[in-house]
Design a protein around this nucleic acid. Structure first.
Length: 424
RNA sequence: GGAGUAGUACUCAAGAGGCUGAAGAGGUGCCCCUGCUAAGGGCAUAGGUCGGGGAACCGGCGCGAGGGUUCAAAUCCCUCCUACUCCGCCA
């Protein structure tokens, strides 16, 4: 959420910067007007309340002394209605401002590329060699079918389309990757291991920025409690510290979280219908940090390095992209995508995304810190990054490590986890 | 799922509508006292947020959360959340 005070003081620059997202945020001008009226009403009602408090005190004193209070009572009778009326006005304004702000995305960082859509994203760097094959490389779904390690038909029978059953060494590869990634981030990169709820409530979805804008993407439980299937570990992890004031000395706080993610893929009907690139359920290892504002960009750089290290260890070719203003996610100020090369697609596909939300989620979730015991609480900055999407990593391994005979070599670092060097 | 109890500041805890933004204790901090330590004594210790103001400061809200009754609510009423105990079910 953006700060209404900041908007108040920098209205035009903020609108200008937000408009780089290729939407119009001119409505913020009206919001600022409502905010002005609201503050006038607050001043008025608080003065009335101060008067009422004083009068009430006096009534107490009079009664104890046994004096008549009817005259005093009469003197504030009219105020009661005014207070109620003003409070209603304030409530209405609050609601309008809150709704607008909850639906307003984060301000893009001033240094990110300006652009319309993903075509304007900026490629920052490449790693690894795109593999060359002396045969026609197959798509992962064909490889998987021949190896009998993925089963889409039975998954559809059990659940629906966009689910998969992993089988045999396919299942073990998924599990190996989860363990490998978690171990790396915990042991080498110093993140604290967490295992979080896979179901989250509405407050958590709002704080992390999924709601109210993207309710259609979530799986809602049929239940009066407003519970949803976790769409990304970012949601439960960010909410670990919702409504908390952290100690400055504890920052940055770094969590690594494996979760299964559930998504409706509402706007993606017909896209990536084959294979396991886009499923309703997939596994992901996620990195989350809570940092001091001044540290968040250096921490972002470290985080992207941590994500890249996974692909480097697996020896998978990838590139790093900086998202332009038009492609930037709702709650983020700056995002890097990591895209892995997929031979069957003859292109790079997203396998991870690393972002700095600055204080946007912190403000929604009321996550603060104190520099020391005496100082005023400030909002933290929150960062999240994939470390990585496990299913897509399986795709990348199957496709990049495939052999002419349809078998798959296992990357060296995974062999201890797989207890084999080939899937055949 | 049933039946019950409870949620007050860092912790424990008092609290029957006005004198309670909250007794008391512990803890913590500073000081005094002793050669050092222990013990003892004194003082301090509600945060947070919103509004006004250049600021000092003033004011609103606040006793799990949200509503309500009242001139006035920690205290009365309603809804919800959480924790605990017992029973039932269960990996």
């Amino acid at each position: 959420m953006l700060d209404i005070k900041q908007i108040r003081d920098n209205l035009e620059p903020i609108i200008k910067q937000l408009n780089l997202r290729n939407e119009s945020f001119d409505y913020l001008r009206d919001i600022v007007k409502i905010d002005e009226e609201r503050r006038l009403a607050i001043k008025e009602v608080e003065d009335l309340k101060a008067k009422r408090n004083e009068t009430s005190k006096k009534i107490g004193e009079f009664k104890r002394a046994g004096n008549d209070v009817s005259e005093i009572l009469q003197s504030i009778e009219a105020d009661k209605a005014s207070i109620q009326e003003l409070e209603q006005t304030i409530r209405d304004s609050d609601k309008k401002i809150e709704t607008a702000l909850l639906n307003t995305p984060n301000i893009p960082h001033k240094d990110i590329p300006i652009g319309k859509d993903e075509n304007d994203n900026k490629v920052l760097r490449h790693f690894g060699e795109v593999p060359t094959f002396d045969f026609d490389p197959k798509a992962h779904w064909d490889l998987a079918q021949e190896l009998d390690i993925l089963d889409f038909d039975r998954a559809a029978k059990i659940a629906s389309s966009r689910f998969v059953v992993y089988k045999g060494l396919g299942a073990r590869l998924e599990r190996a990757l989860i363990n490998f990634m978690m171990n790396m981030h915990v042991e080498k990169h110093g993140y604290t291991e967490t295992l979080l709820p896979f179901i989250v409530n509405k407050e958590s979805m709002i704080a992390s920025g999924q709601f109210p804008k993207f309710e259609d993407d979530a799986f809602k439980l049929v239940d009066e409690r407003n519970l949803y299937l976790n769409p990304t570990a970012e949601v439960p992890a960010i909410n670990l510290h919702r409504n908390e004031i952290l100690k400055g000395e504890d920052l940055p706080i770094k969590y690594a979280a494996f979760t299964t993610a559930f998504r409706q893929e509402a706007g993606s009907a017909g896209r990536d219908t084959r294979g396991i690139i886009r499923l309703h359920q997939f596994n992901k290892v996620e990195l989350i940090k809570f940092s001091k504002p001044e540290d968040s960009y250096p921490e972002l750089d470290k985080m992207i390095e941590h994500s890249e290290n996974v692909l480097k260890a697996l020896k998978l070719p990838y590139r790093v992209i900086e998202l332009c203003s038009g492609d930037l996610g709702f709650g983020m100020a700056k995002t890097y995508d990591i895209e892995v090369y997929l031979p069957a697609y003859e292109t790079y596909r997203e396998i991870g995304s690393i972002s700095n939300a600055e204080d946007y989620q912190a403000r929604r979730g009321n996550i603060k810190f104190k520099r020391d015991a005496k100082s005023k609480p400030e909002f933290v900055h929150t960062l999240n990054g994939s470390g990585l999407a496990v299913g897509r990593t399986v795709v990348a391994i199957l496709e990049n490590y495939q052999q002419k005979d349809g078998t798959i070599n296992i990357p060296e670092v995974l062999q201890p986890y797989m207890k084999t060097d080939t899937i055949k």
